[in-house]
Design a protein around this nucleic acid. Structure first.
Lengths: 189, 189
DNA sequence: ATAAAATGTAGACTTTTGTCATTGCATATT
DNA sequence: AATATGCAATGACAAAAGTCTACATTTTAT
């Protein structure tokens, strides 16, 4: 399992990293059932997770406990409530497993030790932050002006695998449209 | 004008900074007319701007040249297409003055020299990035699930000054709703 | 100061989206 | 195996949002 992370890091920083194996030892492998919370709104996010296998939902609750999903994240990527992880302040979002997952978790202390051990690793946090920011910006610029139908088309073009992998309910909350509407629009296409 | 930036930096890093005045000298003051582009989609963003006075619009064009506004930024804050500035890749967004502006601009070379001169300044980039990310996340989680009316209410609660300061057209493109709808909803409240 | 251009509002109408109730199906639970 | 639970699809209807036109007003440019 750890090999997936090894490949990921080599892909980003190159394979001339001295203490790569030491670094990898900082990560704790976790097997998690589906529908388990990794992060809860209001609590501090203590880990950054690398998803070796599975799928996570990043979302918030509104007043009526409806879910709005900001992101659906699958294997080969990082996931965390970064701002809480970085600052130690309460998280503003929830993260929950959508499927049984294989995760590699690193806590803040280890993360900081890692940064000291391997100067290059400082870049990783920055890279994750920049990627996260880029995704958010993209999402705002893409979604805000799109109609429900256009959002569905977007999904089918750019994240087609999600259509079959996760529930319609989840996708609807990701697209910001009603689940009944989503069902109808799918039928239309 | 430079004093506004001085105060801003002191407010963030404290006033025990050795070379503060040297740092401030890196910034070029700019007076810009309204409706001038600071950054264009497709071109590289070469500066980070501090807004001493005025108002900027951060937006994208869609296929029909409609504008979608991701942010409206006023004095006392930083503004840039950070990802382009950081990577040297083409910008994905446009930035344009909404009013005549007094800006303080710093280019990348100066920015990097500054980071070397004042180690603390490394934090500034990270802070700007984190703040930008936090804003984006907030915006997604807030807006995606809100109706047009709720978005207008949100604006009146959290950014009431914009209502009188900038055009309804601009606000509508910021809220992601039609300008006629925006006009009607305002009348309702 | 004046003309030109852009903006804001309003009404009538169309289209899109949301809500609710119903049904069938699949998946857990005991 | 029987029951409960959650999810997806559909129809009927209500509500919201978008479009288009017209017109008044404000702002900008000359």
């Amino acid at each position: 399992m750890i090999d997936i992370l090894r490949q990921h890091i080599i892909g980003r920083l190159g394979n001339d990293i001295d203490n790569l194996e030491t670094v990898l030892n900082y990560f704790k492998p976790l097997s998690v059932d589906r529908n388990q919370y990794l992060v809860k709104q209001g609590e501090v996010c203590k880990y950054v997770y690398f998803i070796a296998k599975g799928c996570l939902q990043v979302f918030v609750y509104d007043n009526e406990m409806n879910e709005t999903t900001r992101d659906i994240v699958t294997e080969g990527t990082w996931c965390s409530e970064l701002l809480s992880f970085g600052s130690g302040k309460p998280a503003t979002e929830n993260i929950r497993t959508v499927e049984p997952c294989e995760l590699l978790a690193i806590d803040k202390q280890s993360f900081q030790m890692m940064v000291e051990t391997i100067p290059q690793f400082d870049k990783v946090y920055k890279q994750i932050l920049e990627t996260s920011y880029a995704n958010s910006v993209y999402r705002i610029n893409t979604f805000v002006a799109l109609s429900a139908l256009e959002r569905v088309k977007w999904l089918m073009e750019f994240r087609p695998k999600l259509m079959t992998r996760v529930s319609s309910k989840l996708i609807a909350s990701y697209l910001g449209i009603n689940k009944d509407v989503f069902s109808r629009l799918k039928a239309k296409l």
